[in-house]
Design a protein around this nucleic acid. Structure first.
Lengths: 197, 197
DNA sequence: CCTCCCTATCGAGCAATGCTCAATAGCGGC
DNA sequence: GCCGCTATTGAGCATTGCTCGATAGGGAGG
């Protein structure tokens, strides 16, 4: 028998392609394990490349992580694009519905990326940015142009509420998402009212 | 000149003492940096001991981290002991006030321990436990013995709201904590009402 | 005050893992 | 069919979490 380890031959992709592949692998792995368990070695192995190449595309493991998380964030924001030209209440409800549906569908990934142990403040920042973007959607939906700081803080904090409730709710119940969404919209309305005073 | 590196002499403490010292160092370091930046080497250096000794007391770095976080959680829970035998509304307000005051005082530490990047699911669990304990205090204050699951989820999620709002608020404002506490109590009341339906 | 023993403490070294750098080889363009 | 750009690799370094056998401080008993 030959002593050759049957390694797949070197394949050459475009940079763009390779990036996408690597980020895809990261997204997939994060649904299974926490990021600090995701070793560069393993990602490279799954991609069928050497560790060095990963470092060629992402100078640091954190950069890689950040890219993966950013990809996840983009997915979320794309999923919650607000309805054009409907009633404020409907637009609010639509965004909240989309958010609930997103978490229902991608719960595992969402948790590992955003709520599970994160290793890097950078990830916090991306999460923060994302939640701020969601807050912006709320103000958009409500037709509020330049909200008071208190209101901004309150709505942002409400998203923390929403995130937590959605994650827990989808973990314990198989359905009732309409009820959940309704409760979210109601409490959001309450919060806005309280903070606007 | 002598070539002796001036290392302090070996001092022998009781196990209990050493544990406390190490945990204290951890709490202190966490106010300055994220945990993954806290290296075993550095902790040992500050304590004036060898790395090995740290591993003698905490079999794993995570065990050490967990001990530090647990200590921080105990502080928080001790700080928010509910008033005995007052009106429900007053007890609620007292707990919320204590929580706000705690974050105002120990903001840095709180953030690094609970909201900053955490490396370990164990830490999430401790945080979760702590927040659940806080939820329990709310039900105690309100005189609710066995709350519905929906209510439990809602109140727990409200604590996520409260945490976020407090951390952000204390970061941007120097005062107005009464206003903050009032808003928290109001929104909590709203949430309880909405979830009880 | 001396001795003994328990255990707190250390030093050296291993393994995993993030990261670097010079060298190699596939593929598009001429 | 050749050439050059760059995607790709392999070997190796440093840090860091962790192990293990050896050492020594200090309280208990004489």
């Amino acid at each position: 028998m030959t002593g050759t380890t049957d390694r797949p031959p070197r394949v050459r992709r475009t940079a763009e392609d390779r990036r996408r592949q690597l980020i895809g692998i990261g997204l997939e792995m994060l649904t299974t394990m926490a990021f600090h368990q995701v070793t560069v070695d393993e990602v490279a192995r799954r991609a069928g490349i050497s560790r060095s190449l990963l470092f060629h595309y992402f100078p640091t493991k954190r950069d890689y992580y950040a890219a993966v998380v950013r990809a996840a964030a983009r997915r979320l924001l794309r999923a919650t694009v607000p309805l054009e030209g409907a009633e404020p209440a409907d637009r609010l409800r639509a965004t909240v519905d989309a958010y609930v549906a997103f978490i229902r569908r991608r719960r595992e990934a969402y948790v590992s990326v955003f709520r599970a142990p994160r290793q890097d403040e950078w990830i916090l920042e991306i999460h923060e940015e994302t939640q701020n973007a969601l807050s912006h959607k709320v103000f958009e939906a409500l037709g509020i142009d330049s909200p008071e700081e208190t209101l901004v803080l309150a709505v942002r904090a409400w998203w923390a509420f929403a995130e937590h409730l959605c994650v827990d709710w989808t973990a314990r119940r198989d359905g009732g998402d309409e009820e959940l969404a309704a409760m979210l919209v109601d409490t959001l309305t309450d919060v806005v009212r309280r903070a606007a005073v």
